[in-house]
């Protein structure tokens, strides 16, 4: 069943000449993990913002086509209504903190307060969420005291607590150190396993190759949609879009050059492991 459908969607920001996105047609199935890649300015952020309705409701501009998310038309639904269907997290962990929460608990509860969730239910949800993100002993701390990775987890959790079926992540790790990046990817993997549809924009191809079901390559339009092993090993295509292939692909290229391997390029760690184990034998 499709949970997100883009039909001939195009968007142009007010005051700009060109279309940031044009003719987007894409269907995403329930529970899928979609990786979004592309160079800076390729419209990935615009794409991510569109599912929550920030486009067209928050940003001024011109929209064509339609977007259906979890059965509702984005153009005809308010952002606050959409926020119970789609969770959106983005780059800067600090800018996503509302600032109104003096503790992590209050930060998590912010969306629930706005939705008018009763006191008891709200407290239970907050407790459960703290457990899920592994911060149950940090509830009374200030969110500003956390590390970047932990802040990003809190940011993701604070939209997740509103129980969306779709989680959209726009470069959630680009401002984090390697440890923070791993923490966030671990959390996302966990959520994906729970059946939440994940749409994640990131150029961290090493991680994407492990988790994503499909990859979409953007360049103000959709250039290509395919499985990770097809797109992420296309070294030429990636280079055209200012992206670097993964270390695993690099190893398989070297092996090929050395004449030790002659099949398709690899992107999956386990596949590479098998090849190398074969070579050792």
């Amino acid at each position: 069943m499709d949970i997100v459908t883009f039909k001939d969607f195009s968007w142009r920001y007010a005051g700009y000449r060109g279309w940031t996105l044009s003719n987007i047609n894409l269907s995403i199935k329930k529970g899928e993990f979609i990786g979004i890649i592309g160079k800076i300015g390729s419209g990935r952020t615009t794409f991510c913002s569109s599912m929550l309705g920030l486009i067209p409701h928050f940003y001024p501009g011109l929209m064509e086509g339609e977007i259906i998310v979890d059965g509702v038309n984005v153009e005809k639904t308010s952002i606050s209504e959409l926020s119970t269907r789609v969770g959106l997290a983005f780059q800067s962990p600090a800018n996503q903190l509302t600032g109104a929460g003096t503790t992590i608990e209050e930060e998590l509860a912010f969306g629930l307060q706005n939705l008018g969730i009763p006191y008891k239910e709200m407290h239970k949800k907050v407790r459960d969420m703290l457990k899920l993100i592994g911060l149950e002993h940090f509830g009374k701390r200030s969110p500003f005291e956390l590390s970047g990775g932990q802040q990003q987890k809190v940011a993701i959790a604070s939209v997740l607590i509103m129980n969306p079926k779709i989680l959209v992540l726009d470069e959630p790790t680009s401002q984090l150190d390697p440890l923070g990046t791993e923490q966030v990817f671990d959390m996302v993997k966990k959520l994906s396993k729970k059946g939440i549809t994940i749409i994640m924009s990131t150029n961290n191809i090493n991680y994407l190759s492990k988790f994503a079901d499909r990859i979409v390559l953007f360049d103000n339009k959709i250039v290509k949609v395919d499985t990770p092993d097809k797109i992420l090993t296309d070294v030429e295509l990636l280079r055209e879009h200012a992206l670097t292939h993964s270390d695993i692909t690099e190893v398989s290229i070297r092996l090929k050059k050395m004449g030790l391997y002659n099949k398709e390029l690899l992107v999956d760690f386990d596949d590479l492991k098998k090849v190398i184990e074969g070579l050792i034998k």
Binding site: L52, S78, N95, Q96, T98, A109, G111, L115
Partner: peptide, 27 residues
């Protein structure tokens, strides 16, 4: 300014503009 724009998106993502009654975590 950048912070204001990003923060308001974060608030929107958490139903800040929702109509109807609001509740409070602290009581």
């Amino acid at each position: 300014v950048q912070q204001a724009v990003e923060k308001s998106m974060a608030l929107e993502a958490r139903a800040f503009s929702a109509k109807g009654e609001k509740t409070s975590y602290r009581q």
